[in-house]
Amino acid sequence: MLKESQVQFQDAIDPDSDRPIPIIGILYQNQLFKKLKSFPKDKLESAQQLTRQLSLDPKVLCLMLEEADKYTVWCQDAKLKPHNATQAKPSNDSIDKIDLKELVRQMRDIGGVKIKDRRYRLTVYPRCMVGSEMTTWLVRKFFLDEADAIKLGQRLMDEKLLHHVTDNHPFEDGFFFYRFYWDE
């Protein structure tokens, strides 16, 4: 098991996808790895079991990474290509110029952010998304860093296109539920 500090996160292109889109990979000992599965912190044994099963195949090199809030299993993929996202990364000015209505359309469309009914404690919140999933989608779609993705999420809230389901939080990269006003 590796710690986050022992690997380097690397933007990569997966040529096997329908549309070659950037993904977050990790670089370890000059090899690129693609995320296979994530496990909550209380599922350590499940993460270890999957890693052991995959390691039985001598052709598969896999790693288990302990992150702040989860365990992730990564497999080496020789087809992954490094991607220089710094060239495509928009500046803050570019974030301000993004057409928000078009962005919302893409987020609500196929391949967008997962919108569904979600439960927290005893309450069901219909047609909403999780802030961390939205942040990840924005990072991958626009090659943003996490801070800029959060700013873009907050911009959606400031422009009254998105809101927290109970209107108690600004946009945050975490397990917070957000809904588009169009879905009210």
Rank of each mutant, 00 (worst) to 15 (best):
D167K: 14
G111S: 04
M1L: 12
I23F: 04
I150F: 07
T123N: 09
E159I: 01
G174S: 15
F33R: 03
Y181Q: 06
P126I: 01
K97W: 02
L63G: 05
D57H: 12
K116Y: 10
E4M: 06
P15R: 08
F39P: 13
R179F: 02
A12T: 09
E4R: 11
N168C: 14
D93L: 07
R140A: 08
P58A: 13
A47K: 09
E67W: 01
F9P: 03
Y178W: 09
L152C: 10
T135Y: 02
I98V: 09
G112R: 04
P82E: 02
L65F: 00
R118N: 15
K34H: 11
K79L: 03
A47G: 15
P40K: 12
T136H: 12
S132M: 13
D117R: 12
R119S: 14
M129I: 08
M157T: 01
Y125I: 04
F142Q: 02
G112V: 01
L103K: 04
P90S: 04
I150Y: 04
D183C: 13
L162D: 04
L100H: 00
G25R: 03
H83L: 07
L122A: 10
G111H: 07
E4D: 09
G111P: 11
P170W: 02
Q53D: 11
K70Y: 10
F175E: 15
K37V: 11
R108Y: 05
